[in-house]
Design a protein around this nucleic acid. Structure first.
Lengths: 214, 214
DNA sequence: ACCTGAACACCGTTCAAGT
DNA sequence: ACCTGAACACCGTTCAAGT
């Protein structure tokens, strides 16, 4: 609590890796958009300019955080599952990762994952769809839609949580009749996500039988 | 181009209505998150504090902008349409409004529409679903999912446009093989939106026949 | 090569002072 | 009641200067 408490605990040898690690932790408990370069610098005991020197701008750091998070936590379901089950498992797992790191879902939705991550996934994801009888173009579309869907509905959760955190204490105005409302019910966003994914999978399945069956 | 060109063209009588109107126009050509209170004040020929005096904070202005946009431009399909057609028409129209005012889709996804707007819509929207044979709870869920879906996929477009505007000139790096990539193809986002909505409607229909039919 | 410390050009918001 | 003008506490980013 002294005037400038963040003494340079290691004034030499700040590495890019250390910056990313610190940024990941900040993201875990504040969200990707809720820490500043100055916050990050303070955690590292370093001047903000040092981060720019090592990594360029904030966008670079954010992208690195997302890449790290995906690389570290994302895993794939077994490959021989029926395609709906494979996708349900994959997207549910993806959501679980995103939820731990608020703001990352939106970043992936907007900028896509890193090349490396995409390559490691797309092969497998496409194979499940092609094996199920989708044509290449349709499979690519389904891929994109399903991943977007998962990112976007997780983004919805991130954003609504953030907004209700900002509003905070004025809650009990007169809007209590909102159906199955967000906060007080812990499984709300999970149920929304599952329902959205399930209906989408149903819709894609209906499309599959309609186009390949007839 | 003079030092402080925004002379108070009407130094008295700034109304809340005038503020909202100016904010709507700024939103139309820059996006809801891409103008500042200072920008808005300058357009009105007024000091920033004046806006705070009349409307409180930025969030209040943003909410007012969204309400105005929805009230002014949103319209409903005929009520006697089959439920899928009613929803396809409604959501397509909603998207058309959002696209004209970047950032408003995200605001609605996050904060919901105003009470008044919601009331005027929900009645009709629910009626189409109940008439089709959905139970109340399921219909409410379908309602929420479909509206969220439309808001979120429009948000995706807003955010990706914004990001590619920020990146600008580095485009032709080596990512040219991205399938049906965003910018060069004008109908890209529209096709994505339509496909997502259509599959979702298919999935909801499959659910309807499965639960009410059996 | 890396860090320091200050600066620049922005934000949203507040507030005493004027009228 | 409404507007002025300056200020506060933040941002991301840059840069000459130190080591």
């Amino acid at each position: 609590m002294s005037p400038r408490p963040g003494k340079p605990r290691r004034s030499k040898g700040i590495t890019e890796d250390a910056i990313i690690t610190a940024a990941v932790e900040l993201t875990r408990d504040k969200g990707l958009d809720d820490w500043s370069m100055r916050d990050l610098a303070k955690v590292l005991g370093v001047y903000p300019a040092v981060i720019h020197h090592h990594m360029g701008n904030r966008a670079t750091v954010a992208t690195a955080v997302v890449d790290r998070v995906l690389a570290e936590y994302q895993q794939l379901p077994e490959e021989d599952l029926p395609w709906q089950d494979w996708w349900r498992g994959f997207l549910t797992n993806l959501r679980a990762v995103f939820v731990q790191f608020p703001g990352t879902a939106r970043h992936v939705a907007t900028h896509g994952p890193s090349r490396a991550f995409a390559d490691s996934i797309v092969d497998c994801a496409m194979r499940t769809l092609l094996a199920a009888g989708f044509e290449r173009d349709e499979a690519a579309m389904v891929c994109r839609i399903l991943v977007s869907q998962a990112c976007l509905f997780t983004t919805l959760q991130d954003d609504q949580r953030r907004a209700s955190k900002a509003t905070d204490h004025r809650a009990d105005a007169g809007v209590t009749d909102r159906p199955t409302s967000p906060e007080e019910n812990p499984g709300y966003f999970r149920a929304l996500f599952d329902y959205a994914i399930d209906r989408m999978l149903d819709g894609v399945e209906a499309r599959r039988t309609a186009t390949s069956g007839a």
